[in-house]
Each structure stands twice: as C-alpha cells, then as structure tokens.
Design a protein around this nucleic acid. Structure first.
Lengths: 331, 331
DNA sequence: TAGTGTTATGTAACCCGTTACATAAACGCG
DNA sequence: CGCGTTTATGTAACGGGTTACATAACACTA
C-alpha cells in the first residue's frame, strides 16, 4: 500500500499539497493538481482511513444495537439504518445485545474506543447514568430508555387502543391481552392502550392479561393456559406479531377456530404475519421508516452538533387480514 | 479523554511502561504496575483503538456481506458470525449488497481503507480478479464465487437429490422445480440434484422447471403459470423456503390443496417454514452452524496466517412437516 | 512604491499508541 | 571480582494522515 508520502515524492510536491488535492481544500494550482491526480492513479493510492480517524477523532462508523437480529422485527430496521448511513459514507456496525445490559455496556465501551461517531439503541436497560457522560450522539429507537435520549417511536398506546377498539366493533365481548415484557416501554404502552379500552367493561378481569416476552414459544404456552382457564374469550390483542404466531398455534392445538371462534389482532406488521394461516390482522408500524428517521436524525446530530432535534412519534396503521372475524352489521 | 501520556505523567513513568502494563508485555516491576493501574483507574483511561490500529495495520473488525438482511435466511447467519467474532473481540460490520457487484466493490474498498481484518461473503458476483490482489483473508459462505476462495457451504446437489427422491418415494409422479437465480451457485447445484433424479423419468419435461429469484413474489407468479400449464403436477421441489411460501400462496389461489393434491418440499430450514400453513417440509441447512464455521475459519486465517485451511461442505437434513403427503405403503 | 490581498507550496507538529533500542541496576556464578 | 543474564525503565521513531503556520511570488490599489 502506498502512502501519501509516496505520492508526494513521485509528484515532486509536499504531503500537504497531496492532502489538499485529496480533500479539495485550500489552494492548489491546476497543473499541480493534475500531476498529483496522475500519480494517485498510477500508484492506486487510497488514503488510510485509520490515520484520518486518529487525527480527526471520528471514524465514519455508526452502530445499531438490537436485542437479536434473528427476531424478524429487526432486520427491516437494520436494513433501513444501513441504507441511510451507507449512503452518507458511514460504515454500519451491528450489535446483538440479548437485552443484556452487561453486553450493551461492553459493546458501547469497545465502540467508544474505536471513535464511533454515533449509536442507535433498541434497548430497555440502558439507564441515564450509563450514558450521561458519553459525548457521542445516541438515539433511542422503537423504545424509550430510562434516560432523556432522543427517541423515534410509534404511538403504541393509541395504536393498541385502536386495535382493541376495532375488536370491540367486530363484536368481541371478552378480549384478552398477551403482553410483551414489562421491561420494554413499547410493551407497557400497548398494555396501557388495551387497559384504556377494556378496564371499564363489566367483563374485564385481570386474569385476561398474560405476560409474554415477545417470543413465539412463551406466547404459545401462556395462551394455552389462558384459553383453558377462560374458554369464553373471543378476542386476543397480542403485543406483537411474533407472539401472535404462538397464539395461533395455541388456538390450533386446542381446536379453537380463528377467526370464527376467536379473533386475534397483533402489533408490528412484519412480513411474517402475511404468511401465517390465517394471515394476521395487525397494527402495522412503519418499520423501515422509523429506522430511516432514526438514522437521519443521528447523522444530523453528528454532522451539525448545534441543531436542536426533537423526538418523533410515528403513526401506526391497521391492516385487516384473516385472523379477525368479519364485521357483522347486525348481531 | 485521557491519553497514555497523561497516565505516564501522573504515574511518573514513561509511556512505554504504561504500554507494557496495558498489554502485559515485557518487564514491569510489581509496584510500578500497581501504581500505573491505580492511575488508569483514577483517570478512567481507555486506550485509543484507532491509534493502535494505525500502528498495527489491523482493526479488529470483520465484515459480513449478504444480499439483503431482510431475507429471513440471513439473520441467523449474521447472528452466528457476530456471536463468534464478538467473543474474540472483533467488531462486526454488516453490508447489504443487493447482489450488486458495484456495491460489493464499493464496500470492499471502503473497508480496506479502514484496515478491515477479514471478510465473509455471501456473493455470486465477485470474480477472482476482483479479489486476487487483496491480502485480507476472505471466506465465501453459502455460495461458491467465481474464484478460488475458501468456502463454507452445504451439500446442495445431494440435498436436492434426496428431497426429490423423497417425493418420489411418497408416490409423486410429476415433480416440478422452482429454481433459484442462475447466478447463485447454490441454486445451480440444487437444480442439478433435481435433474439427477428426474431427467431419466418418462414424464419429465423441461417445462417443469421455472426460474425464480429466491423471493416470494416471483415464485408466486411463476408457480401460478406452471400449475395452470401443467395441472397434472403433483409435487414441487422449491429451491428455497422463501419461494415455497409463494408456491403455497399460488396453490391456495388456484384452490389446489397442499399436500393432498400437491406436495411441496423446499430447501433451507428457516424458522418461517414452521409458521406457514401447511408447515413446510424442507431440506434444512445447519444455518447457524455454517455461519459459525465461516467465522471460525476466518479468525483462524487472521490470527494464524500460516495454517492451511480447507473448504467445508456440510450436510443437510430432511425435516418432514405438513406440505408433503403421507407415505402410502401401497398405492 | 509601499502596502494589502490572493494564490501556491512547504515544514513540521500533532493525533495516540507500540516497540526497537539504549541504558542501567541487580543477580548469579565460576 | 568480572562477566553474562535477567529485570526494569526510558527515549524516540514510527504508522499515515491533517493542518497551523511560515514563506514567497504576484496582482492590485492608494
């Protein structure tokens, strides 16, 4: 690999001049510039980014923290962030945290030592004190952490309320909820929205709520006991699509017909929900869009440190597919 | 951020001594070491990895190139590679190439400028000449590129043969094939395996083969015309699970019952195949395992440049679910 | 013509670790 | 006691860029 000094020598100029040519900064005579560019071509010279980073204290790298890229919600987010940051010349680092605060902190420290320029977190566990002395821009995505990070989220509470409201419109009389992990703000908000809609109903009972952890298997288990304990349930609002797959399986194993005997509505709008049978009715998030926005905001913070930036809350949208019963005009 | 010189000054030693303490190299007196460690603690000193990288010419970063992380085959691969490399102290970079050779080369050049230590490619398009002068270790994963890269793959031809063989055992008499993109070596091998099994059959016709591109939508389209043109087809071997979802949809839209009227078998063994209805019978790859092996081999090449390393071909395994008909002892 | 501004280029310090090499004290042994 | 070895520590070059500052030629203006 040739260096800037090799180029300078061959072009019979100083390294400063070569640097000016590369960066199109300062004054360089047209003929000199041409000569330097010829030599760069000849030597196939590429500036060493590490040396640049060292001097500038910036690396042109950003990181995305997700619990687990194997959870189908995250690839779309990751893709969005990678698309945007790549377009701006940044390198994209992916970190799987398993919701483990130790892992998160280990990644964070390692990345700071590499002069990372910014991070986007999908995290529950990060606390304010853990990031308060970090001067690197950080954005929270999908969830709100216990800190004052700028966040890009969706309107979980209202979305949940609408989902449950829709089931009520359909004529469901006993609507249960498979909740997400209490540690996730998104899960708590969705539960709130559910409670908003059902708490005042005479039929409502706390035993209609079961805790899941956003995974298929756990949802399968808790739904089975839920439905055994409460055979009269005719609707379930599931905190995410992935768990809804478990719910569908549980219903099938109990020979409960969806949607005829049981309506299922969930949240997220991942592709997977189109392929189940019945296909999932769901409150869809603009997943790619929020990932994109988080990346855009992060880059804004990195490149124009002054500008004031606000958190964003995006809208969700009901997608009616097959897991909810048809609306009956008359009962 | 404090530097090694700050530490040296406060501990009243030279930077070389501090460096020795950090790296546990060379001779350092026990008391000196203690003193230095105290100062490091006090200043919360963390060595700057960029400076290290510059001197060493290594970055402790590796990259994985995939066509698109949103394709459900790749997250598991990515997770495996990230798990292994992270455990060894490497930072994991993800690149979505969209099978675009231009994008691949752009990523590659950018990463080389960052002193990347190694790369794992899931690529069709990379040619030998494009990587021949790269001194950085590169492994090909899932596919074989047109080059002499070491690769970690599965036995696609034989797996396909077995899949088709299994359908014949089930009594299928006319087996079609939805193929993957001809540019992918995996797709070509699977087609070969299919041909091996069916070419000699009297019923075989070239019109039984339709080209897909490993995506749901395209598979849906071509399957529809396939089944309309050839109503007597009673089995389809689909080159990957994702396309099988499209096949299932096409069959459903034509009111063809799977598996009663049509058996469907595919390839990959992604989680998605468990959630469709009917669940997919498939030739499962050890996805996480091959990702893990690719990462392990890469690290071996990075850390012990001398050792000779061989390509690996792993075995696939038939997983019988619901999309293939029951075996009948007698017809 | 002195003074100011613009253009052009070079020198060397700087970013922050690592390590080759130099120096020197302490130790072991014949 | 003298010499080789082990232990301990420091100095300074190095990796490969960037940029503040110095210098100088030249144009233009008062």
């Amino acid at each position: 690999m040739s260096t800037i000094r090799d180029v300078a020598k061959l072009a019979k100029v100083s390294v400063a001049t070569v640097s000016r040519v590369i960066n199109e900064s300062g004054y360089v005579n047209v003929k000199t510039k041409q000569k330097v560019e010829e030599v760069i071509e000849e030597l196939d010279y590429r500036p060493n980014d590490v040396a640049r980073s060292l001097f500038k204290g910036k690396s042109k790298m950003i990181a995305l923290f997700v619990p687990d890229i194997m959870n189908p919600f995250f690839p779309e987010l990751a893709r969005a962030v990678e698309d945007i940051t790549n377009k701006h010349g940044y390198t994209f680092i992916l970190c799987n945290t398993d919701n483990d605060n130790k892992k998160e902190m280990a990644y964070m420290n390692a990345l700071l030592q590499k002069s990372i320029d910014g991070m986007i977190l999908v995290s529950n566990t990060m606390t304010a004190s853990q990031i308060k002395d970090t001067k690197v821009p950080i954005i929270s995505l999908d969830r709100k952490t216990r800190s004052d990070l700028i966040s890009v989220t969706v309107n979980n509470r209202e979305g949940a309320r609408q989902a449950v409201g829709y089931m009520k419109e359909l004529g469901c009389k006993r609507i249960a909820h498979i909740a997400g992990p209490d540690s996730a703000s998104s899960a708590r908000s969705r539960m709130e929205g559910y409670l908003n809609e059902v708490q005042e109903e005479k039929w409502f009972s706390n035993s209609f709520i079961r805790a899941g952890n956003y995974s298929i298997d756990e949802a399968y288990k808790v739904t089975k006991t839920l439905l055994k304990d409460n055979p009269n349930i005719d609707g379930i609002f599931v905190a995410n699509d992935l768990m809804a797959v478990g719910v569908l399986k549980a219903a099938a194993s109990l020979k409960i017909k969806v949607p005829d005997e049981l309506s299922v509505i969930s949240f997220d709008g991942i592709k997977l929900g189109e392929t189940t049978s019945p296909a999932l009715t769901t409150m869809a998030q603009p997943i790619y869009h929020i990932g994109k926005r988080a990346a855009e905001i992060l880059l804004e913070k990195i490149e124009k440190p002054g500008t004031v930036i606000q958190s964003e809350e995006h809208q969700v949208q009901l997608i009616i597919r097959e897991s909810t019963r048809e609306k009956r005009l008359k009962e």
